[in-house]
């Protein structure tokens, strides 16, 4: 697999914590690579990105359906893109390809461009850089194992994922553990172990390999469409809607399909192009997040 060994991930987490402990002291800049960018950006902005400022104002003033919007958005994205790449490089050397990070940071940039409100008075980069950093941090967090899982179990988990996909297609439903065991020629107990291993990480580099899908983000969002089936009927519409809007496109689509579209996880997995186990994890995680925000303990 082209991913990152568990040990390396663990080291990354630890070093991040260490840096956070020292934040505010001599190493503060190291703990917050974006700090430098923000400071530099504030002073360089006029020279380097100043010409984009009027475009931002213009963009923010256009209404949703304005035909001029797409072109303007494109110019803004292209114009600010070097910042996303610069940020990505600062987070590289952590076991994740820089191109992946650049893509993630660009996603944050697009969000920042869409959400920026010049009327609030702060400059764009002061808003955009933390947004991009947030995306990058989320990316690292989502790809970090929450528990150390032995290599044997990780491989077993991948095998189970493959078998599940094949069996789902054959059977037209999710397979039972016994069916997976029979297909792989292993014991039911081993299948249970492998399934349990899957709950030990928070989301997954594994699934990316499993599904062969790298195309997350905007392309996927387009593929899924933006339909909110039946949501209007729901009493909690008003409280839920704003929270849904903050979810990543994929998580949001999966949530809607499962709880408002009456689709099974296996059907969703097929539609979205990820594994059933990944759907399961994303749903559980999204629900826990929403619960926390809807009804803080």
């Amino acid at each position: 697999m082209g991913g990152h060994p568990v040990g390396e991930e663990a080291v990354i987490r630890m070093s991040e914590h260490r840096q956070f402990d020292q934040a505010g002291h001599a190493n503060a800049a190291a703990a917050d690579p974006g700090r430098h960018d923000r400071e530099a950006a504030a002073s360089d902005e006029d020279s380097e990105y100043g010409h984009l400022e009027p475009l931002l104002t213009e963009y923010a003033q256009l209404t949703e359906g304005d035909p001029a919007r797409a072109g303007l958005r494109e110019r803004l994205i292209t114009g600010f893109l070097p910042i996303a790449h610069h940020l990505a490089r600062r987070y590289s050397q952590r076991g994740v390809p820089t191109e992946d990070l650049a893509q993630v940071a660009s996603l944050g940039l697009v969000q920042a461009i869409d959400r920026y409100d010049p009327n609030l008075g702060h400059n764009f980069l002061a808003f955009a850089i933390p947004t991009m950093q947030g995306e990058v941090r989320r990316y690292f967090r989502d790809r970090t194992w929450s528990m150390r899982v032995p290599r044997r179990l990780r491989e077993l988990h991948i095998q189970i994922g493959h078998a599940t996909r094949d069996l789902s297609q054959q059977l037209g439903r999710a397979p039972r553990p016994s069916e997976i065991a029979a297909k792989l020629g292993i014991s039911a107990e081993e299948v249970l172990e492998g399934l349990e291993a899957g709950t030990a990480y928070s989301a997954s580099s594994l699934d990316r390999e499993l599904d062969g899908s790298d195309s997350e983000g905007s392309a996927l969002a387009e593929r899924l469409g933006a339909n909110d089936p039946q949501l209007e009927l729901v009493e909690i519409h008003h409280t839920l809607q704003p929270l849904l809007a903050t979810l990543p496109a994929r998580e949001r689509a999966i949530l809607l399909m499962r709880f408002f579209g009456n689709m099974t996880q296996t059907q969703i997995a097929e539609k979205v192009g990820i594994s059933q186990m990944h759907v399961s994890r994303l749903l559980a995680k999204t629900l826990a997040d929403l619960r926390e925000r809807l009804e803080p303990a």
């Binding site: 999710a174 553990p177 039911a188 996880q265 296996t266 059933q276």
Partner: peptide
């Protein structure tokens, strides 16, 4: 362990 399918389990 009761061998319900994966959708059921999750």
């Amino acid at each position: 362990r009761a061998d319900f399918d994966l959708d059921f389990i999750s």
